[in-house]
Measured scan of single mutants.
Amino acid sequence: EPLWIRPDAPSRCTWQLGRPASESPHHHTAPAKSPKILPDILKKIGDTPMVRINKIGKKFGLKCELLAKCEFFNAGGSVKDRISLRMIEDAERDGTLKPGDTIIEPTSGNTGIGLALAAAVRGYRCIIVMPEKMSSEKVDVLRALGAEIVRTPTNARFDSPESHVGVAWRLKNEIPNSHILDQYRNASNPLAHYDTTADEILQQCDGKLDMLVASVGTGGTITGIARKLKEKCPGCRIIGVDPEGSILAEPEELNQTEQTTYEVEGIGYDFIPTVLDRTVVDKWFKSNDEEAFTFARMLIAQEGLLCGGSAGSTVAVAVKAAQELQEGQRCVVILPDSVRNYMTKFLSDRWMLQKGFLKEEDLTEKKPWWWHLRVQELGLSAPLTVLPTITCGHTIEILREKGFDQAPVVDEAGVILGMVTLGNMLSSLLAGKVQPSDQVGKVIYKQFKQIRLTDTLGRLSHILEMDHFALVVHEQIQYHSTGKSSQRQMVFGVVTAIDLLNFVAAQERDQK
């Protein structure tokens, strides 16, 4: 057995438009009618409502009807409940999964919650491996369901041993009777949507819809739904939504950006999952974080739909894509998950301010006199920076000697690579993860907040409520011999709460 199987392995699926269902090699399930009293909570997966979006479509000038398939009504709160249950049931049916076995899954959280929910009911041990950027709410729900959680670096490539995929496979090879159901490759993922989600949409719309818009992560949702719609409703256009920084969209030119990270969760990847059939997507749109969270908040405030950030991405694209539809036509959007997962993220004004998705003037509360002053007023001194090749031991000596707790790590040209902190280095040394002679590049981390000289002290204040420091950066445009230009970030300084307090105190003292 291989040590790991690539999540982007070539698909062996034989589905073709027009091929009889009787030739399918898979076990198919028909939607079942729910009894009045459910035998367990797993029976509350599927049969989610279709809700008309009344205000947002009109606000953006849509002539067509805009409908939302509300997947956050599933038992675990997301569309991923469907595939989690289906993968477990299919693994039980073919004898792969037996009582007492362990389920391991690399996930952005929602599939993990679905699997942990099913594992709690069915009696399996469950280990979820997820990147650090995923919300604390997801972690809390997983723990409450009895799952064990392993976190991995957000910026690790999918084929790196440190990625959530790599760590999951390492655990599988170490733990007896453990299984990775593997949402990236498992046919049960798109089949769950082909058999149930798509049929529900067709039934709820009486077979009449002209466009379907869905955000894409593993691709199982859009693949399964689109294949069924292509068979039953061939005139329906399928629109895929991919965040900026991901590479799922086609044509490839759409993916060209210097951005590699994004805040919206559960969609987009740096590889093409095996289950994603991009041939059934008629057109791709890219979405960005700001519009995703703005539209998610709009869905909550104006439509009462308590959905997550990827739902915002989907609707932001839908109001663009559906401009081509006329009166009497219908566009369906998939709202994948609930706001429950993001209470401390985009639902929080403070978080939105820190990330730059909300401006101070958007909030009406009274601010102190210094709130709208610029960061450049602080008069920061030149920063202490270190090269990635310097040793951890030497870096600790320098920081202690100069009285700093942290320093930016830059390359020879001064471009920011990340940050090192005294606390992080000492804990890594004590844990045996690094040696004093190791290069400081081994303990770089990139989960820090950046701020510009033109940003306000109010925004800085919000950042420092949650973080010990902020890195002050400025952009530099560099022209190359080819005539092309590129933008790079340079370090201007490091600012802490002490710097802000000293500035405010000094100004008030001078005024007296």
Rank of each mutant, 00 (worst) to 15 (best):
Q478A: 10
V494S: 06
E327K: 12
H480M: 11
S437T: 04
L363N: 09
Q447V: 09
R278W: 05
I272F: 13
I239S: 04
A301D: 15
D438E: 15
S427I: 11
T294Q: 11
V275S: 04
P251H: 07
G240R: 04
W284Y: 00
E377P: 09
E412W: 09
R452N: 15
V280A: 13
F469P: 10
V473S: 14
I444Q: 11
K345Q: 06
G403R: 15
E412I: 15
T274C: 00
L387P: 13
D289K: 01
L471D: 02
T260F: 13
K433Q: 14
R509M: 14
Q435R: 11
D277A: 08
H474D: 11
Q507I: 14
D499P: 01
H394N: 14
H394A: 01
Q326P: 10
G458L: 06
A301M: 12
I390C: 11
H372C: 14
I334H: 03
V275N: 04
L457W: 00
F285Y: 14
L471A: 08
N341M: 02
Y262M: 01
T364N: 13
D289M: 00
K442P: 15
S338W: 02
G418E: 03
V443N: 09
T364G: 11
L335Q: 01
K320N: 14
K484I: 14
L347W: 00
R459L: 10
E508Q: 14
E244G: 07
K345R: 08
V281Q: 06
T314H: 11
W351K: 01
E361C: 12
C331T: 00
G240E: 05
L430G: 02
E377Q: 13
L500Y: 09
E508R: 13
A316Y: 12
R488E: 12
G245Q: 00
V434L: 13
V317F: 05
T314R: 03
G379L: 04
G432P: 08
Q478L: 14
R459E: 02
C331L: 09
G493V: 11
T279S: 12
Q326C: 11
G240D: 08
G308T: 00
D277S: 08
T385F: 08
A318E: 01
S246N: 05
E250F: 07
H474S: 10
G403L: 03
D337N: 04
P388H: 07
F346W: 01
L378N: 01
T274E: 02
